[in-house]
């Protein structure tokens, strides 16, 4: 039987409420939160220090937006799994995020179940 590998989660969102909500609500046993960042620049710095396996990424943020941050993170670690969590509900934005290297898209507002389902789907082959 394969052992389930523990994974590190980084949360990126300019809203403190959303960062805390994701940390509180995520119930995937193998995921442990290693830190959170409020914009793309902070996220890159935190990424370098903590080397997460999974990232939840907001898109509309000050300093550096989520799409640009996704590109940076994927360049640093191509196997990182990124779930975009954004209010931007148009298809073109979701397609662009995936094209830049994100692995999933969850639209705000979301329920706890939707968050956990999206994370579980992201991790199904890991």
């Amino acid at each position: 039987m394969n052992a389930v590998r523990p994974l590190k989660l980084m949360i990126v969102d300019d809203s403190n409420i959303i960062r805390r909500r994701i940390e509180r609500s995520q119930q995937i046993e193998r995921l442990s939160v290693v830190g959170s960042a409020a914009n793309g620049r902070e996220a890159i710095d935190l990424f370098d220090r903590t080397d997460p396996d999974v990232v939840t990424m907001d898109l509309t943020m000050p300093e550096m937006d989520g799409i640009e941050c996704v590109e940076h993170l994927v360049a640093k670690k191509p196997q990182v799994l990124i779930l975009v969590v954004s209010a931007l509900a148009d298809k073109a934005t979701a397609v662009e995020a995936i094209r830049k290297g994100a692995n999933g898209f969850l639209c705000k507002p979301f329920t706890d179940r939707q968050l956990n389902d999206a994370l579980a789907e992201l991790l199904q082959d890991v």
Partner: peptide, 25 residues
């Protein structure tokens, strides 16, 4: 929270308005 509510409702509006409906932080 007040900013996040405004952000979420505005961002969701792009489902109908499209990507050219550009929202600020």
């Amino acid at each position: 929270l007040i900013g996040e509510v405004a952000n979420t409702i505005s961002g969701n509006a792009r489902r109908d308005f499209g990507k050219e409906f550009v929202i600020s932080v």
